[in-house]
């Protein structure tokens, strides 16, 4: 049976992380997606409002996260994946800001991933196609950035995962970076060959894919073994809502408007054996505090359903 995970945002509190991991365990999860991005929020980064959490030394950061690591271990929760803060480059941002993100935040995130003995860290690629004029040039910038952290990944035994993102044109959502599965597969293979190690993989984000009408089954099948981790969540096709799967309908028949059958078929096609990880933190802020555990339990039940269907 595939293992189930969920992001730590809105569950794990820094003052007593073990309590949060205990909640996850009771809800039915055995894995967690550690939200490093919660310590440097994207909304602040875009405003150049940096809190300098990552300015601490690696030793201090490890000391800060010691209780998190211990709490997870004591509750039997595996930190199976992490999310690096994003964006890692701000077009229009000061050089100082972008240097800080690339030279401080990224390597320290890698160090923390290693500290948690976590195998996968998800990054957001650069969004620069508008400025540079093509997706190819945009990827060249991302690859230059990757080359600064891939040697660390190799040394630490970590696979960095690129994720399918969306972009917006006057309110209309379109493909962002990493939405071409064929190109992503070629790039991952080429880079792994270059480093003689599995340093790059893919994180398939169901919500982002749904926003731009990607065929889940085709995309996942094309990625194949390169698909390492998941961000499972749902939306109405218009906004990146990060809600519970099967929540949205678009017809009077009230069938789910997201192609979860295609998702299951895709994972079955590639014999996916990673973690079924939910990126549904906003659900927990939407439900009242008293229902948080029940909501998490329900998400885990959906995970069990997916696992059964994928295992066939």
């Amino acid at each position: 049976m595939l293992r189930l995970g969920v992001q730590t945002n809105n569950v794990i509190e820094d003052n007593c992380p073990q309590d949060g991991f205990a909640i996850l365990k009771r809800a039915g999860f055995s894995c967690a997606d550690f939200s490093l991005n919660g310590y440097l929020k994207n909304t602040d980064v875009y405003k150049s409002d940096i809190n300098h959490f990552f300015s601490q030394s690696v030793q201090d950061l490890e000391a800060f996260f010691g209780s998190h690591k211990q709490g997870a271990a004591e509750e039997g929760i595996l930190i199976s994946q992490m999310h690096m803060p994003y964006p890692i480059y701000v077009p229009g941002g000061d050089k100082e800001l972008n240097d800080y993100l690339r030279e401080v935040v990224a390597p320290k995130s890698m160090a923390l991933c290693s500290f948690f003995q976590c195998t996968y860290i998800v990054i957001h690629s650069y969004k620069l196609a508008l400025y540079l004029g093509s997706e190819r040039r945009e990827w060249e910038q991302t690859e230059q950035f990757l080359d600064t952290i891939l040697p660390m990944a190799k040394e630490m035994g970590i696979t960095i995962c690129i994720e399918n993102l969306y972009d917006s044109v006057r309110g209309h959502l379109i493909e962002g970076p990493c939405c071409n599965a064929v190109k992503a597969a070629e790039r991952i293979d080429r880079i792994n060959d270059k480093y003689h190690a599995e340093v790059l993989g893919f994180c398939f984000d169901t919500g982002h894919a749904n926003l731009i009408g990607i065929d889940f089954e085709d995309f996942i099948t094309t990625l194949g073994h390169r698909l390492k981790v998941l961000h499972i969540h749902d939306n109405d096709g218009r906004q990146d809502l990060h809600q519970i799967p099967f929540t949205f309908t678009a017809t009077r028949e009230n069938k789910s408007s997201t192609d979860w059958d295609g998702f299951i078929r895709g994972l079955r096609n590639i014999q996916y054996n990673g973690v079924l990880n939910f990126e549904t933190a906003p659900v927990l802020s939407a439900f009242p505090e008293g229902m948080k555990e029940a909501a998490l339990g329900f998400i885990a039940q959906i995970g069990h359903y997916f696992a059964e269907q994928i295992d066939g």
Binding site: G213, I214, E253, K255, S256, D259
Partner: peptide, 14 residues
């Protein structure tokens, strides 16, 4: 699919 439109045949360039 489910009342929403997604990519059909030849909607992926490759």
């Amino acid at each position: 699919t489910g009342g929403r439109f997604v990519r059909g045949i030849c909607a992926e360039s490759f």
